[in-house]
Design a binder for these strands. Structure first.
Length: 497
RNA sequence: GGCCUUAUCGUCUAACGGUUAGGACAUCGGCUUUUCAAGCCGGUAAUCCGGGUUCGAUUCCCGGUAGGGUCACCA
């Protein structure tokens, strides 16, 4: 029996093995995340392997993209195409000799044969099976005297015994599949590249992978893998079938065709890597506790294969937003400021009064109001940021509280006098004491006297010029004494027009 | 169609035969020195259906239904 020393050492080795066919999406990354977390938790090895055996589907730049996606999350691999490792290379296209070696063993054992049919001929078999509403099985057409394999024809596995297979899955327990699941599948394609079905088995063997973590769409083809393990006398690794992530619209498994997006889009949209890990961790796994916000380290610590779910979970962007907001609140003020700055559009940054100081001051109130980077942009576009950096303009009537009790007759004069009194009150506060608390203390008694809405609303509006904003005390403290008084004076000016 | 597989609030999930079926997101309402946000408090909301087994089923078994996966010279 072929066994790898790492295997018998019981040191955990997992891998993430994407094919470079474009961007990776959340489903792929969740698989990587679990494999990585499991290896990390067990002080094992996490391998990144590129399964580039289908040159027709290959997309330029995919490998870099996969690596960038993982790196963004902080998922580091111990062995991979860029850093090498004891079992290099880590790209299947560079491992052709290995596949050939094992293919030859199978040929010698009489367990592999050259496929004499053309693709078109096989297609006809398939169509016929389809029309007859029965599964297509190549082995129904297994040739009696196949030609000698010269490396130019596809090489097919010759299933030695057609039987039911049973196996243990660490997530789902005991699994079995009938003989229908077994077929003479292709080992090496006509172009000399191996198929996934064959290549991954050889790689996992040579790289000492102990736990194969992959989506449960592979459950149907597991008997094929099992028949190869048997034929080659390879010890079975542990199987860990992961439940699918469903798209948010329907109940379909998330996939590129169904609108799954490029994982790095989430970075652009302002989702934090830790939030992303936190969110992904909980689609398909739960530690049974009610704690919902986890750092990556906490997740790794808590992660347990036994608690991986068997049924799929829907991707829910609202929850992602909530988790992201929670992680945003966990950031230091400096990090928050940096984060916000990234999303502030140029038209705000070019405002005359724009400064890093003001940005620093408004950071808490922005963080409080947004769940992701897109929403910072929305705030900016809605004018909810502009007034911090430039004096607002508005009509004098908008200065009045909606249920104002100020008499209609001479309301402009009355409001002007309120604001004038206001200014003198604020003027009593020194520059250095001009903070939220002191401002509130000064204003409040007077506001009570006058009717709170009648004075608080105009003050807030004079400072912001918009219907919705933080309260006037916060606004005044951020704007500073000079600017606050200047804006209030401006309100008086507007009332006189 | 064959085979495999799944099934708790709208969503993510907890409850390894005994709970008023718990939490979170979302939603709705209230409270915060009358806008907005945040925060706090509270409400609405679920065991797919039918049979068993059992003193007792969300939980175990069978059937149905519905969903998902797979049946490639794709992974």
């Amino acid at each position: 029996m072929i066994d790898n020393s790492k295997n018998s050492n019981k040191k955990v080795v997992t891998r993430f093995a994407p094919s470079p066919t474009g961007f990776v999406h959340v489903g792929n990354i969740r698989t990587a995340l679990y494999a990585w977390a499991f290896a990390k938790k067990n002080n094992g090895t996490f391998i990144l392997r590129i399964e580039d055996t289908d040159k027709s589907r290959e997309v330029e730049g995919s490998i870099g993209h996969v690596m960038a996606s993982l790196k963004w999350l902080g998922i580091e691999w111990n062995e991979g195409p860029d850093i090498g490792g004891p079992n290099a290379p880590y790209k299947q296209s560079e491992r052709l000799d290995s596949y050939k070696k094992y293919a030859k063993i199978l040929v010698e054992k009489g367990l592999a044969y050259a496929d004499p049919y053309t693709e078109e001929e096989v297609e006809i078999f398939r169509k016929k099976a389809d029309e007859e509403k029965r599964p297509f099985l190549y082995r129904d057409h297994r040739p009696d005297n196949p030609p000698i394999w010269d490396g130019t024809q596809p090489l097919r596995f010759k299933v030695p015994i057609i039987k039911s297979y049973e196996w243990e899955d660490l997530v789902r327990g005991h699994l079995k599949a009938g003989p229908e699941a077994l077929d003479d599948f292709i080992l090496i394609k006509g172009d000399g590249y191996p198929t996934y079905n064959f290549a991954h088995i050889i790689d996992d063997l040579e790289m000492g992978v102990t736990h194969i973590m992959r989506g449960d769409e592979f459950i149907s083809s597991t008997p094929k893998f099992l028949s190869i393990y048997d034929a080659l006398e390879i010890k079975r690794p542990e199987f860990v079938m992961l439940p699918p992530i469903m798209g948010s619209e329907g109940k379909k498994k998330l996939g590129k065709r169904d609108g799954a997006k490029d994982f790095l889009e989430y970075e652009k949209e302002g989702y934090l890597p830790d939030a992303m890990i936190n969110f992904l961790a909980f689609i398909g796994w739960n530690h049974g506790d009610e704690k919902e916000i986890l750092t990556p380290d906490e997740f790794i610590n808590l992660f347990d294969i036994k608690q991986i779910h068997i049924s799929g979970g829907q991707f829910n962007e609202e929850k992602l937003d909530w988790i992201n907001h929670e992680h945003l609140k966990l950031l230091t003020l400096e990090k928050q400021e940096e984060y916000i700055s990234k999303y502030i559009p140029d038209n705000i940054k070019s405002l005359p009064n724009y400064s890093r100081d003001i940005l620093h001051n408004i950071t808490p109130i922005v963080i409080e109001r947004i769940k992701n980077g897109k929403e910072i942009l929305e705030m900016a576009n809605n004018g909810d940021l502009t007034y911090f950096f430039s004096e607002p303009t508005y009509s004098k009537d908008s200065l009045f509280f909606k249920s104002s009790k100020i008499p209609e007759d001479n309301k402009y004069e009355i409001l002007s006098s309120y604001i004038t009194n206001f200014i003198s009150l604020l003027d009593e506060i020194s520059d250095s004491d001009f903070n939220k608390e002191n401002i509130k203390n000064k204003i409040w008694a007077y506001a009570e006297e006058v009717g709170r809405g009648d004075i608080l609303w105009p003050m807030r509006f004079a400072l912001s010029g918009v219907d919705k904003s933080p309260d006037p005390f916060v606004l005044a403290s951020i704007l500073g004494k000079n600017e606050t008084i200047s804006r209030l004076k401006n309100a008086i000016k507007i009332l006189k027009i």
